[in-house]
Simulated assay, not measured.
Amino acid sequence: MIRRVGPPPIKDRKYTQRSGAYAILPVRGGVLLTGQQGDWLDIQLPGGGIDPGESPQQTLHREVREETGWAIAQPLRLGAFRRFVYMPEYDMWAEKLCTVFVARPTRRISDPIEPDHVSLVLPWAEAIASIGNDGDRLFLQRYASSSV
């Protein structure tokens, strides 16, 4: 059973299952994150939905490159969580199954190519306090307490 993080599903609401892969990316000085700009800067672990035919690792490489501009190596699965959310960019309610990895950023290839995304490095405590969802925060806290 995958742990639910965040609010429970709303009774009688239909949710579409959406699997994704997300990365904790330790770097000198903290952790590499992505910020999605909108009405506010939503700070997130880089990652996103798994496309048909992709493995979680392929998704991780693609999404980190799109959202941060960095290439990564040695992804290691840390665990998973699920959350029930509305995804306005897709106009749908989703049960997101989020697999979290830790990986080593190897080199910056470009600026982020995902629209409205910026890459940023934050110290661990600031990253944990600033991250936009409870599942990402849970995994950042666990990783930081055991590795940093």
Rank of each mutant, 00 (worst) to 15 (best):
R107N: 06
A103K: 09
G47E: 09
P56N: 02
R107F: 11
G29A: 06
P105K: 07
I72V: 13
P115D: 07
T99E: 12
R18D: 02
G53R: 02
I113D: 06
L60W: 04
D111G: 07
S55Y: 14
G29C: 12
S110F: 04
P123I: 11
Q57A: 08
T106N: 02
G30K: 11
E126P: 00
G49N: 11
L122Y: 04
V118W: 03
R28E: 15
G79P: 12
T59I: 10
P26D: 12
P123T: 10
L122W: 01
T106S: 14
S130G: 00
P26Y: 12
A73S: 14
R107C: 04
E67N: 09
L122C: 03
P26V: 14
E63H: 04
I113V: 15
L33A: 06
E95W: 01
I109H: 13
E114T: 15
L45G: 08
H61N: 01
A80Q: 15
I131C: 05
Y22R: 07
C98K: 13
S55Q: 01
Q17H: 00
W70M: 13
P56M: 02
F84D: 04
S110Y: 02
A103I: 05
W70E: 06
Q37D: 03
V85P: 00
V102M: 05
Q36W: 06
L97T: 09
D51Y: 11
G47H: 07
S19R: 09
V27P: 06
R104V: 14
A80C: 07
P46Y: 03
A21M: 03
L122K: 05
A21L: 03
Q17D: 09
L120M: 14
P112D: 03
L60R: 06
P26W: 08
I50D: 01
Y15V: 05
Y15F: 14
E126C: 04
A127V: 07
T99S: 09
I128K: 09
P112A: 04
R83I: 03
L45A: 05
D91G: 00
P26M: 07
I109D: 14
S130A: 15
D111M: 09
R104I: 13
W40A: 15
L78I: 05
L33T: 08
E95C: 10
C98M: 13
I50Q: 02
C98Y: 04
I128D: 02
I72S: 02
H61Q: 05
D51T: 11
L45Q: 05
T16M: 09
T106H: 01
W124K: 08
V102N: 11
L122D: 01
R107I: 08
Q17R: 07
P115R: 12
G20N: 01
G35W: 00
G47A: 00
S130T: 12
Q36T: 15
L76R: 15
Y90C: 03
G38P: 02
R83H: 10
I109K: 01
H117C: 14
P26F: 12
V102L: 07
A94M: 05
S130D: 08
Y15G: 10
Y90L: 14
L25M: 08
G20Q: 12
G48T: 03
V31Y: 04
R82V: 04
V100I: 08
A80K: 03
G29M: 12
Q37C: 00
A23E: 06
Q37Y: 04
G29Q: 13
K96G: 00
